[in-house]
């Protein structure tokens, strides 16, 4: 990911909520920024990901389901 950054504005109340989550995360997140970047990346990834299984993975699962008697 590019190192270049941009600034965005979010409601202060949301910021406070996220800050609280970060504090309670037990060190999982070090800052509000890190938390927000993580959540957005996960969201974007989910939308970009498309298929859950690669063709090879799907074939492997189907092979097992056939052995289990489901296909």
């Amino acid at each position: 990911m590019s190192k270049e950054k941009v600034a965005i504005y979010i409601p202060k109340s949301l910021y406070e909520k996220v800050k609280k989550q970060v504090e309670e995360s037990g060190g999982e997140f070090k800052s509000v920024e890190e938390y927000i970047v993580f959540v957005l990346e996960e969201l974007v990834k989910e939308e970009e990901e498309g298929e859950v299984y690669s063709p090879e993975e799907e074939e492997e699962i189907k092979r097992r389901l056939r052995a289990l008697g489901y296909l």
Partner: peptide, 20 residues
């Protein structure tokens, strides 16, 4: 309804059930 599902627009093209 099973461990697989019929993909839209097909009779026997099956997808495997997943968490999404």
């Amino acid at each position: 309804y099973d461990l697989r599902y019929r993909k839209k627009g097909s009779y026997t093209d099956f997808g495997v059930v997943n968490s999404r």
